[in-house]
Design a protein around this nucleic acid. Sequence first.
DNA 1: CTGAATTTGGTACTTTAGTATGAGTGCTTC
DNA 2: GAAGCACTCATACTAAAGTACCAAATTCAG
Lengths: 136, 136
Amino acid sequence: MKKTILIFGSLILALLLLFQISTYSLLLGSTSIEVVIAVIALVFFFTGIYLNKKSLHKPPQTEIRIDEKKLAELQLSKREYEVLQEVALGLSNKEIADKLFLTESTIKTHVSNVLIKLDAKRRTQAIQIAKELNIL
Amino acid sequence: MKKTILIFGSLILALLLLFQISTYSLLLGSTSIEVVIAVIALVFFFTGIYLNKKSLHKPPQTEIRIDEKKLAELQLSKREYEVLQEVALGLSNKEIADKLFLTESTIKTHVSNVLIKLDAKRRTQAIQIAKELNIL
DNA sequence: CTGAATTTGGTACTTTAGTATGAGTGCTTC
DNA sequence: GAAGCACTCATACTAAAGTACCAAATTCAG
């Protein structure tokens, strides 16, 4: 955050300086109007590109957020959703049971319910459906 | 593509026009230097932002291309990779067999080989590993 | 407090998935 | 033409996964 403020501050300062220098050099007649305008245009053009890259480019790349609405629509209970997440990680029912301190029976029950609610025949299909719905 | 050329063309034209108008209005003394420079700066600033958004913003959002290198490293045969893709779609061995006009035995063999090559214990884990490696 | 939903777990059973092993075919490469 | 590899398929298993049904404890809103 500190770095951002510093960069922005010096950027604004530099642009203001450029602005003033341009105005004065024009008044003094040492530089032609065309050159000044061209320099200004180029500098601000690339400043625009740079700022855009910094501020708007990062967030959309990494985040692929889950669809809370569809998650609610599906009526999955907390445990069922939790189990679904573990299933998607490639764990077996036994492994999930150990991880959540439950028995394999319980996991089977939850998985079966998930399959019904997601309208899937197999756990692999449930994973595919869940990812299509942006639930995972 | 046609649209892009059209947009870029009119953009360049508009900028050139702005450039000329600025120069002339300055020479005629009808506008102050500061105003012209400010307008030029703003226009080029936002043009930079716009172009950057159009050209560099789209590809990373939609495309998540597969990692050809890792795919080669894994030494998966054509059929094995093909079967892996179907597995990731949530199909059963029987369904894959029917889809590819093979027997379930053959699919089982392919899946087993895929599991070994991906170092996975289950097909669900194979899916997870494959997606982590950007193979799918 | 009560009824409904959730969570947990069990038994019994069927269906898939996965392993091990062998074997025939076709294609390429040395 | 023999060795190697990919592809196909089979049999015989074992191990998971999944279904059906039941039941107790817990949670939670009305």
